[in-house]
């Protein structure tokens, strides 16, 4: 894995290289170079299997983090290419020409995060929800509990026996109480 990262860093500027396991490494690449790097890995380094694409919302930094997780069937190891894109105007170069499965991930990300992939097929189609017109639901600033209470007629007298609360009071009475919990109790 070390050699691959060295080879890759000679071509592109890598950040946040983390060796998570012997066979798994994560590295961040700038938005401009990402698709090029992924294509290079696929064509020259044998990372031919796209395991998954994912997206993480880092709302504090105002960034979305995209992940391209590639697997090498010969060396049997994985590399995760991370790309940070702007949260306000999320747009990323589409990779649907590289694998046939990519457009599905991009369609899902478009629906759940609002990221635009220009040129990706069937991007505007519904994936899991129909006619959704609120904030894209996987964003951190969308409060699902509030939305559910507002919309779906919660049944009254629902006794929520919060296990955390129960355990704190009954099972661990001697546990030091944090300031926030003290505030909640009041």
């Amino acid at each position: 894995m070390k050699e691959l990262i060295e080879k890759l860093s000679s071509k592109y500027e890598l950040q946040e290289v983390v060796y998570q396991r012997d066979n798994l490494v994560f590295a961040a690449i700038s938005k401009e170079n990402a698709i090029e790097a992924v294509t290079y890995l696929r064509d020259y380094e044998g990372y031919t299997h796209l395991v998954m694409m994912s997206c993480v919302d880092w709302i504090e930094d105002g960034k979305y983090q995209l992940l391209y997780l590639l697997h090498n069937p010969k060396l049997k190891n994985d590399i995760g290419i991370k790309v940070y894109i702007d949260r306000e105007n999320p747009e990323m170069v589409s990779a649907h020409h590289l694998w046939k499965s990519v457009w599905t991930y991009q369609r899902e990300m478009h629906e759940s995060f609002g990221i635009v992939f220009p040129g990706s097929p069937r991007l505007e189609e519904n994936f899991v929800v129909e006619g959704w017109d609120e904030t894209p639901f996987m964003r951190r600033d969308f409060d699902t509990h509030e939305y559910a209470e507002k919309t779906y007629f919660p049944r009254g007298n629902r006794k929520t026996n919060d296990p955390a609360e129960y355990m704190r009071k009954k099972l661990y009475p001697n546990q030091p109480v944090t300031a926030k919990q003290r505030k909640d109790d009041k």
Partner: peptide, 19 residues
């Protein structure tokens, strides 16, 4: 279907079917 159960706070599933 009675009160949302484990998904009481989900944006996608209903809470009470009899409504």
């Amino acid at each position: 279907t009675i009160n949302g159960g484990m998904y009481y706070d989900s944006y996608s599933t209903i809470n009470r079917l009899d409504k």
